[in-house]
Amino acid sequence: MADVVLVEGLAVETVIGVYDWEREITQRLLVDLEMAWDNRVPAASDDVADALDYAAVSERVSQCIQALQPQLIETAAEAVATMLQQDFGVSWLRITVNKPGAVPAATSVGVRIERGQR
């Protein structure tokens, strides 16, 4: 399947980091998602019930990361990938988690993972 549903630049405010001072503040993560989804069915029915609900996905991604309060962005990415595959039935996904400002000389640092079969 070549169809993909996108969520780009999802801002999530959460506690993240390994340093003591990071555990006392919230920082912004930016999350990009690419999720395999057969869009032929919702396209034919024109019914949102047949589509991958990107609003619900976005809310759950935010909740997942905020509840987790991970030390590493790698942990956040893995938790989100697992949740999306289990709870939304996404067979394949690519997730990018960026932490802007983590390295002063860089615009952002981050990780990108792919899970599942396309």
Rank of each mutant, 00 (worst) to 15 (best):
A51E: 12
G110P: 09
I65W: 06
G17Y: 01
A43T: 04
Q69E: 14
W92S: 05
D46H: 10
L72F: 12
R28E: 15
P70E: 07
P42A: 05
S62G: 14
R60Y: 01
Q63P: 00
V18M: 04
Q86C: 04
L6Q: 06
E8R: 15
A79E: 12
A81S: 14
E22L: 07
G89I: 13
R118Y: 05
Q117G: 03
V48Y: 02
P100K: 08
P100M: 06
I95P: 00
A51M: 08
V18Y: 05
I95Q: 02
E78I: 10
R23P: 04
L93P: 02
A2D: 13
W21H: 12
A43H: 00
D50A: 01
D20L: 04
I73R: 13
T26L: 02
R94W: 01
Q69T: 15
D53K: 01
E114H: 00
W21N: 02
T14A: 12
V57W: 04
V97L: 07
S108E: 13
Y54F: 11
F88T: 09
M35I: 05
T96S: 14
V103H: 00
N39A: 09
D38K: 01
I25P: 00
A102F: 08
Q117R: 07
G17T: 00
V97C: 09
S108I: 08
C64N: 12
M1S: 15
A102C: 09
P100R: 10
I25L: 05
A81P: 08
W21G: 01
I25R: 10
R40S: 15
L72P: 04
I16S: 06
K99Y: 12
W92L: 02
P104N: 09
I25Q: 09
F88M: 12
N98C: 15
V80A: 02
T82I: 09
A81Y: 04
G9D: 13
D46C: 02
T82L: 07
V61I: 15
Q86G: 07
A81H: 03
L33M: 11
M1R: 06
A55T: 05
L68R: 12
L52M: 06
I113N: 02
R23F: 03
L30V: 15
S62P: 01
L30I: 15
G9C: 13
V31E: 03
T96E: 09
L72Y: 07
A67E: 15
L29I: 14
M83V: 06
A2Y: 01
L33A: 12
E59H: 10
S108Q: 15
A36M: 14
E78S: 08
A79P: 01
G116V: 06
V103K: 00
L84G: 11
V4Q: 04
M1N: 07
I16D: 10
G89H: 13
